[in-house]
């Protein structure tokens, strides 16, 4: 004899457990999805939110996300010092970073910087992360990586 089913007399109890657990799970999921957790647990602030917070943002460690504004990158390798302006399209914040940025870093790309707002209005950071989009593109036809770099530089100089 081989048991294929647990004690049938406890079947009603198990079904009650099932219904209760499903209800608890569904409400937990609903709370996570539609509760205001997103407002309380923001992974990064955008430039507008940082500006809105004003002086309250100064001093505490926060993450700031946005796009590296074209033509504002100033990288001094000998000092390992990087400056650029982060923008959300309308408002801007100057950022100073120490250390070399990731290879993906370039003008026009999304970044998240972790650091503090200073009273002078500059955001200082020691942790710069590049935010890649969900777009995966093949290189332009027949162009090697070096040629693409060259093209990028050419476009940049315009």
């Amino acid at each position: 004899m081989s048991a294929t089913t647990a004690n049938p007399s406890a079947q009603g109890t198990r079904r009650v457990f099932l219904v209760v657990t499903l209800l608890v799970a569904a409400s937990a999921l609903g709370f996570i999805a539609f509760g205001n957790m997103g407002e309380n647990l923001v992974y990064y602030w955008d430039v507008g939110q940082l500006r809105e917070a004003g002086d309250k943002a100064i001093g505490s460690t926060i993450r700031l996300g946005g796009v590296v504004k074209e033509g504002t990158v100033d990288w001094r390798p000998d000092e390992s010092h990087l400056e650029f302006i982060i923008t959300d399209g309308s408002q801007e914040v100057p950022v100073e970073c120490s250390g070399a940025p990731p290879q993906m870093f370039r003008e026009g790309i999304g970044v998240v910087v972790e650091g503090t707002m200073t009273p002078s209005g500059t955001f200082t950071s020691e942790r710069l992360m590049v935010k890649h989009s969900n777009e995966y593109k093949a290189p332009e036809d027949g162009m090697s990586a070096d040629e693409r770099k060259q093209l990028y530089r050419t476009v940049e100089d315009l």
Partner: peptide, 13 residues
């Protein structure tokens, strides 16, 4: 400007 470090935007190696 050190192109291999910043500006290319491409991942090498």
């Amino acid at each position: 400007m050190d192109e291999s470090q910043v500006g290319s935007g491409m991942v090498d190696g």
